[in-house]
Design a protein around this nucleic acid. Structure first.
Lengths: 214, 214
DNA sequence: TGATTTTTGTACTGTCTTGCATAATATAAA
DNA sequence: TTTATATTATGCAAGACAGTACAAAAATCA
């Protein structure tokens, strides 16, 4: 029930009035995200979240609002992390094949990590569950799906410009295949398909998308 | 709370002793499946199931066991239906492209139907949720995933034999792409991506897999 | 008709759940 | 030292939940 009683230790000590927080919101949100990813929304109780974050229930409400709001904030955090990883991979110049390999390696690392089981893709997990009945969550999931599509489309468009792909290649069709490959490994990782099988799927898909390695 | 009070009306009236059932197990299981697909395991209460099936809770227990057993039986029912649809499509001889079109059309019909929202693919939904923590359910999901892979692999192998695909085509790689396409439309359908977008994804994928239509 | 069997319907138990009210605690400001 | 403020911790209230016990009901069999 204690997260780490050290004072914030942030760069600027803000000299806040009142009793100091016993938690760091960033850390707590990360813990909540981990739990939601593992168990889903409905199967995760506030007591579970309280234990995982080291915050008691009233503090959770004060910091993040009710369970649904906490879920939404957890999802936004997830998206930020995923986007950061993507941006990092897109910053440098490199051949398409290599870029795709990096993207899928990053995705596999994210999906397969987790102490008590593979964490999978939170967008996919949320699409399968809460997105159906909650319009606001659904809108976020749709945005997440299309962000991935767009990133891949961009990737293939650039490759065409650089002459790495034939002029006849359809960037958006390839992008949807690339997204589909992400989705299939996200699903399979949840069912604990071994990493090497997932890597084989990725390699086969890359060969089809950009041509087999000479 | 009443499913239809008519007597079984089945082909052979079995003359069972005791008070007759007020429900038909097959019908009730179908209703339970519908609800589980829509809401998932954790978000579905026994009261919900009781209302949907027209059976009261004790009858549910008597007929199907506890909630988890009912979920498992619902999933098995789903698989039987999915398999029946597949077998039907594989019975007749036809070109690969047409067979793929039929398979995806059938999948889309299953995923998009549902009065209160798209029902999606129960294998995918279950993989994302219960499969992580429940080994028995996970085993069933893995079986479902590989059954689809195998069906597609068979389809492509036959196509190679008939000369519809080049000898260099890798049936198992194509099969995993075909499965990935099923998974991506299953996910997207849950986020209520419009049917025509899903059809575009399917058509693009088919073109990549078996070559664009002249 | 009465006994037997099977299922239904009601009600109950104990646990878990969410959300909040209230008091105790720890800090800064006056 | 006192006061104001922000947070923690305890605990409560109302309801949802899973699962079961038990009596009433509806059929067959003797």
């Amino acid at each position: 029930m204690v997260q780490k009683s050290e004072p914030p230790a942030a760069a600027s000590p803000p000299k806040r009035r009142g009793r100091p927080r016993a938690y760091e919101p960033e850390v707590a949100l990360g813990k909540a995200l981990d739990l939601f990813r593992k168990q889903g929304f409905a199967a995760t109780s506030l007591d579970d979240l309280s234990e995982a974050t080291g915050m008691n229930r009233p503090s959770l409400y004060g910091a993040f609002g009710d369970k649904r709001e906490l879920y939404i904030k957890s999802y936004q955090r997830y998206r930020e992390e995923a986007r950061a990883a993507m941006v990092e991979i897109f910053r440098q110049e490199m051949p398409v094949r290599q870029r795709l390999e990096r993207i899928y390696a990053s995705a596999l690392n994210i999906y397969l990590s987790g102490e008590t089981g593979p964490r999978g893709c939170f967008t996919v997990v949320t699409a399968a569950s809460e997105a159906v009945s909650d319009p606001e969550i659904r809108a976020m999931v749709l945005d997440g799906l299309s962000e991935l599509d767009k990133a891949f489309a961009n990737c293939f468009r650039k490759a065409k410009e650089k002459g790495e792909l034939p002029e006849t290649a359809d960037a958006s069709v390839l992008a949807q295949l690339a997204s589909a490959t992400v989705h299939t490994i996200a699903i399979r990782s949840r069912a604990r398909v071994p990493r090497k099988d997932l890597e084989a799927i990725v390699n086969g898909a890359i060969d089809v998308m950009v041509g087999a390695r000479n």
